[in-house]
Design a protein around this nucleic acid. Structure first.
Lengths: 202, 202
DNA sequence: TATTTATTTAGCAATTTTGTCAAACAAAGA
DNA sequence: TCTTTGTTTGACAAAATTGCTAAATAAATA
């Protein structure tokens, strides 16, 4: 039997994700990651070749989840616009509570010299998605449930209201002296609150 | 004449702030900071004793500005609530455009082992500030301009809508293919848009 | 000008970190 | 059992980084 579990590669990746996305320790070294995963540091190089490639693997997985959720929102049909946004809000807040520092990791990694990690969407795909969203949004604007704005701004509003609070958790907790249970309760409340802010008369 | 400008200490601090808050290179070393400031690396230690203390100085300055703005919002009087929030939104968006990564730096630094950088507000001060805000907010809720919510949630909404978009700049730019001039224009538009989202019938 | 103080520089030591490698070990198959 | 393949380990070299110091330089002052 090998000393370390056969799913070593996954173990390393998941430990790295926990350290980065859950605990927000973006400075973590291969030493730290290996230790917390309970494996020899050399295995990181055996499976990922380099520190950067481990980061890249983790980054890819994280951005795929985020992008997938956005995709589902923008393409799904059979539901009303408000229903779709409602689901998206719920998923995004839940995901944010699970991985509060994920977006911060993405942004920080993108800022590393010579990073080409985030592949931009195809031009037609992007335009189609935004047209799609814009149409549904205009209906709401016509109904008076949403103030006049571009689909981009609406998207920024949704993402801001859902994602920022999770990022801000440590600051809120320290500055406003909010403990974790109360913070979690607030995030649950936000699910409907955000909808009320986005849609008048929700 | 000294080889380096007499205001070396300020120069170092401002360069560090630019690298951290404007360019988002949170992993910058003393080497990099000194080089970009055009000074000898030893001067960082001459003026700041250690890397950590430079970080601390920068952190303190940044959190004081943010906290000061919040304080002004919560204590100022002679203006209507909506006017006060309007000013705060404008200041916060402007500040965020100038220093997009400031909050990320704060969060990252707070997550470093053994960080005691952020001093929590005094308990009475905090309660008074929130009571103050809560009162004005309840008037708005009674008028029907704001949906029912706690002052904490309202504050989170304001901060989210203003601050998160600046943090998200690189992601938005890459994913949605928005160039910088257009991005800046969007942020200007947000100043009134955020108010419309916060207050029905603004 | 001469002396003292403050600032700057270059270089060194200590530590941390990444990345490599050969040897040890385990599992699977011949 | 012997061999082959894949996995794990510890040791080591190379690079990066921090922090320190003694000497050089500039500025301030007597």
């Amino acid at each position: 039997m090998p000393v370390v579990d056969a799913r070593t590669e996954e173990l390393i990746k998941e430990t790295a994700m926990r350290i980065f996305f859950v605990e927000g320790r973006l400075h973590a070294t291969t030493q730290v990651i290996a230790k917390e995963a309970g494996v020899n540091r050399g295995l990181i190089y055996y499976y990922f070749q380099s520190r950067d490639q481990l980061f890249e693997a983790v980054f890819k997985e994280a951005s795929m989840v985020t992008r997938g959720r956005l995709r589902d929102l923008l393409l799904s049909n059979g539901k009303s616009f408000q229903e779709k946004i409602g689901e998206f809000v719920e998923l995004t807040i839940d995901h944010g509570m699970k991985y509060p520092y994920l977006e911060m990791f993405l942004v920080t990694e993108m800022n590393r010299d010579g990073s080409t990690l985030l592949i931009p969407l195809e031009d037609d795909t992007r335009k189609e998605l935004l047209r799609n969203l814009g149409k549904a949004l205009n209906d709401e604007i016509a109904k008076g449930t949403v103030p006049k704005m571009s689909p981009e701004q609406f998207l920024i509003n949704v993402l801001s209201l859902c994602t920022y609070p999770t990022l801000y958790k440590p600051i809120l907790q320290q500055m406003a002296n909010i403990d974790t249970p109360r913070y979690l309760k607030m995030m649950e409340e936000r699910k409907t609150l955000v909808m009320k802010v986005l849609f008048r008369g929700y």
